[in-house]
Computed example of a mutant assay.
Amino acid sequence: MNILLPAVSLLLVASGPAVAQRPDAEAAAVQRTIQTFFAGMRAGDSALVRSTIAPGAVFHTISNRGGTTQVQPESPADFLKAVGTPHQQVWDERITFDKVLVDANLASVWTPYEFYLGSTFSHCGYNSFQLVKLAAGGWKIAHIIDTRRKEKCK
C-alpha cells in the first residue's frame, strides 16, 4: 500500500501539465478564429470572414445617442456584403486580446480595439465575442457586440 500511494501521486502530478495545456491550445485556436476574421476584413475577403462565422450568428453594436444607450442589431449578411464590396481604404481593426475564457465548446473573448480607414483613425471601443466549437469547422463566432467612440480609447 505504501508503494501504491506514491505511484498514484506521481501519475497525478505528471498528468497535470498535459491537462493544463489543453485550455491554452483552445484559447489559441479561439484567437486564431478572431484574427482570421479581421485579416479577411483587412483584405476585403468576405469568404474568409464568412469562414469564421457560425450559422445564425448575431451582431450588435452599443451606441449612445442623445445620452441614451441603445443596442442596435447589425446584419451579418450586410456586413459580409460590405466587406466584399471594393472600397478605397483598408478597413483595419487593430485589436489586443484582453481576456479569453474557454469552457468546453463555449468561448468568450474581450478585445479593446482601434479602427482605422487606411491610416486614418476612425473610432475605438471594445469587442465582446462569443464563440462556439462546432463538430465541423472548429471555433466559430456566434455573437459579436461592440462599443464605438472617438475618444478615451483604452
Rank of each mutant, 00 (worst) to 15 (best):
M1E: 12
K140L: 11
L11H: 07
T111C: 15
A20I: 07
E114T: 08
R148S: 13
T69H: 11
Q21V: 13
A135E: 11
F38E: 00
A136S: 15
I145V: 15
S63T: 15
K140Y: 03
G40N: 08
G67N: 11
G40Q: 10
N127A: 11
T85H: 09
R50K: 14
S122K: 02
L106R: 05
L131A: 10
A82W: 13
E74F: 06
Y113M: 02
Q72F: 02
A18Q: 09
Y126C: 00
T111P: 03
G44D: 06
Q70M: 14
L48A: 15
A57L: 04
M1G: 14
A47T: 15
S63D: 06
T33L: 07
T52W: 04
A57D: 03
Q31D: 00
L117W: 09
K154T: 05
A104V: 10
M41C: 11
P112Y: 09
I3T: 13
Q35R: 15
R94S: 10
D92G: 08
V100D: 01
N127Y: 13
Y116P: 01
R32K: 14
C153W: 05
A7S: 12
R32H: 12
T85M: 06
R65F: 01
A29K: 04
G16R: 09
P76F: 09
A82T: 14
G56Y: 08
V58N: 02
T36L: 07
R94Y: 07
S15E: 04
A39Q: 12
Q35G: 08
G44E: 05
I141A: 03
V49W: 01
W139P: 00
V8R: 01
D78L: 14
A135K: 14
A28Y: 03
N127L: 06
V100E: 03
K140M: 06
V58E: 10
A47L: 13
V19L: 15
A28V: 00
C124H: 02
A104H: 13
L134S: 12
L101S: 14
F38L: 13
W139H: 01
I144N: 05
S119L: 10
K152L: 08
R42M: 08
Q35F: 01
K140D: 06
L10N: 04
A135R: 14
I144S: 00
Q31M: 14
I62R: 13
Q21I: 10
I141F: 01
K152I: 06
